[in-house]
């Protein structure tokens, strides 16, 4: 693997995470618990679309085969997607979506803080912009998890259930492979494993405020680094890519 190939894959991974989570959050549009929250969740989805666009555009530039961000989003099959599995999981109930958002945003808070210092100027610039958005996503998700966890018996039960179910998908956030190792040598990539302690500490604190028990560390799901996904990604892509697949190069 050359550094160029690694950087391509790294940017794809970051773009795919944003794109697929955005697709999931968008499903709340007109379905959120109340109007204001509908706007809040779709606002986050739009932030993520912007990030996906920037990352995939950069991936296309690095690749050098004149692929646009749209080519990469709409014309790759699921085995060529590298988003973490947690992004593609169905939304579940509102508590489930907010717990996932908390887990992901907390990770991204640490991750993009570090990526800002990347020696790759484009990644560093996207990271600086992303960090502001992520801080808000984190705040919003944290407040909801505490509010629901420390709320009624039912809301507490739903948050606890979401935490238990999602826990096994959190390990993958910190996974690293040859791509990361190669890019870390030149200070381009973030050492994700180093972020784990901070993440655990922050999540533990927030869940304590929410009266939620931290699950015991057990089996962790894995696969996205190799393009291996849950059955859910294919369904997202079939909906998202339908138009481009059925009518390639369609324009308005």
């Amino acid at each position: 693997m050359t550094e160029q190939q690694a950087l391509y894959k790294y940017s794809l991974r970051l773009g795919d995470n944003a794109l697929i989570l955005s697709a999931r959050l968008s499903e709340w549009c007109s379905n959120a618990p109340f109007l204001e929250e509908d706007l809040a969740v779709t606002n986050m989805a739009l932030d993520l679309i912007g990030r996906a666009q920037a990352m995939l555009k950069y991936a296309g530039e690095v690749d050098g085969n004149s692929k646009t961000e749209d080519d990469l989003a709409y014309r790759r099959g699921e085995r060529d997607y590298y988003n973490n599995l947690i992004m593609e999981l169905p939304n579940g109930d509102f508590a489930y979506t907010m717990v996932r958002q908390l887990f992901v945003s907390t990770f991204e808070l640490f991750f993009y803080e570090e990526l800002q210092k990347s020696t790759d100027a484009t990644l560093a610039a996207i990271a600086a912009k992303t960090l502001k958005e992520v801080k808000y996503h984190h705040l919003h998700a944290k407040d909801w998890v505490i509010r629901l966890g420390d709320g009624t018996e039912e809301s507490n039960r739903r948050v606890q259930q979401a935490v238990n179910q999602l826990w096994m998908y959190t390990g993958e956030l910190f996974e690293m492979d040859g791509t990361d190792a190669l890019l870390m040598k030149d200070g381009i990539a973030v050492n994700a494993e180093h972020l784990k302690m901070g993440w655990i500490q922050m999540v533990t604190q927030i869940l304590a405020l929410a009266n939620i028990e931290l699950p015991a560390d057990g089996y962790m799901q894995s696969g996205s680094r190799m393009g291996i996904h849950t059955e859910h990604l294919g369904h997202i892509l079939s909906e998202m890519q339908y138009l481009q697949r059925a009518y390639p190069d369609a324009t308005w």
């Binding site: 109340f34 809040a40 606002n43 919003h140 407040d143 509010r147």
Partner: peptide, 17 residues
């Protein structure tokens, strides 16, 4: 105007709306 159950939620909902 917006709906919210507490100050923080009110501020966030105002921002988002």
């Amino acid at each position: 105007s917006i709906h919210a159950s507490d100050k923080q939620m009110a501020l966030q909902n105002a921002r988002d709306t």
